[in-house]
Write a protein that binds this DNA or RNA. Structure first.
Length: 333
DNA sequence: AACAAAACCAACCGCATTCGG
DNA sequence: TCCGAATGCGGTTGGTTTTGT
């Protein structure tokens, strides 16, 4: 068990992938499909271990991967899902199918953790209601809320979160609407493998990083700017306007009333395996009566920051209807 | 302009889990 | 049922880029 035999072999290449290797890998996957990674090195001639091939494919070459430019909504989703699921990056990623778990993990570690810490410091000093460091929520020992009150709130929140999760995850043939990989509109926004490679090649060939940066992840500062405009008193960021799509599934998770009225046709018929896995996992958790960690103990600051925006902007999708996250989310608190 | 520090992120490592003979 | 192989996942590392002095 454990480590793959072969990764330790002498002659197995490590480090950054070259365009040639990427092309070889993509060609192989296009011909044989993703899977049987063990056979990939031998069949492609790649001097990489199977694990490395799989990782390269899933994190970089796979079609449908969106890189950089985490939107405000994605950011909020990550924060909320992280609060709900903990550092289950794969599970979180299943709700953001255009993002890889690695990407989300990196973004959390490099951006969100710091941002939350900063907010926390600004607004609550050292009085932690949750730990940004480990992503778990802690009861505030000297919170203004009395212990009994806090416990009641927590229990209510747990129940509501469980209910929401159950509803959201047990809909027949449904899952997050943003798992609509077959939706041409959506898929058109994703890069195909070929496009990924083309982009890579462009990146490799560029002499200046300026062009690529506009498309690449360094644009996270844009997100930061908008999000940072949220203040402790819950001032909404300026760009937050009505939207749906990603947030609707999120609504399914965290917004109770409005979820009830969401029709299942708003959800995709093609759940990703990861999403299904998460579904099973959470169902199992429910059956085992394991307390579901819920985002309800987030500090008021976070609550404001995350939820007290009138509306949320989303990537333009003509078929998306307006959605007020604020309304539905307040059912939780 | 040069250097240092910080930030970023692709890739690696190793444990856990699942699969299949 | 057992055991080894295959795969999945989360934490960490290290090279590169960006920012600050």
């Amino acid at each position: 068990m454990g480590r793959l035999p072969g990764c330790d072999k002498i002659g197995v290449k490590k480090g950054p992938w070259t365009p040639e290797e990427d092309i070889m890998l993509v060609s192989y996957v296009q011909e044989h499909g993703a899977g049987n990674w063990r056979a990939v090195p031998t069949k492609t001639g790649l001097r990489r271990c199977s694990k490395s091939c799989r990782l390269r494919w899933t994190n970089y070459l796979r079609p449908g991967i969106k890189r950089g430019n985490f939107t405000d909504q994605e950011e909020k989703m990550i924060i909320q899902l992280q609060a709900l699921l903990g550092n289950k990056w794969a599970a979180i990623a299943s709700y953001l199918p255009e993002r890889t778990d690695n990407d989300i993990k990196n973004y959390w570690n490099t951006h969100l953790k710091k941002k939350l810490k900063k907010l926390q410091d600004q607004c609550t000093g050292s009085d932690d209601q949750f730990s940004v460091e480990n992503g778990t929520h802690l009861s505030s020992s000297n919170s203004s809320t009395s212990r009994g009150q806090w416990e009641r709130t927590l229990q209510a929140d747990i129940n509501m979160a469980k209910k929401a999760l159950h509803n959201a995850l047990t809909l027949d043939n449904s899952t997050s609407p943003y798992i609509k990989q077959e939706n041409p509109q959506v898929s058109s926004t994703y890069a195909s493998s070929t496009e990924n490679i083309a982009r890579l090649l462009q990146g490799w060939m560029r002499s200046s990083s300026s062009t690529n940066n506009s498309e690449n992840s360094k644009t996270s500062s844009n997100n930061t700017a908008t999000t940072d405009s949220s203040s402790c008193d819950g001032t909404p960021s300026a760009e937050s306007k009505g939207g749906m799509g990603l947030m609707e599934a999120f609504e399914s998770l965290f917004g109770m009333e409005s979820f009830e009225s969401s029709s299942s046709d708003q959800f995709s018929q093609t759940a990703s395996p990861q999403a299904e896995a998460t579904k099973v996992e959470i169902k199992k958790e429910e059956n085992e009566q394991v307390p579901v960690p819920v985002p309800v103990s987030l500090s008021v600051i976070l609550e404001n920051w995350l939820l007290d925006e009138n509306t949320l902007n989303i990537q333009p999708k003509d078929d998306l209807t307006n959605f007020s996250f604020d309304e539905s989310a307040h059912g939780l608190f």
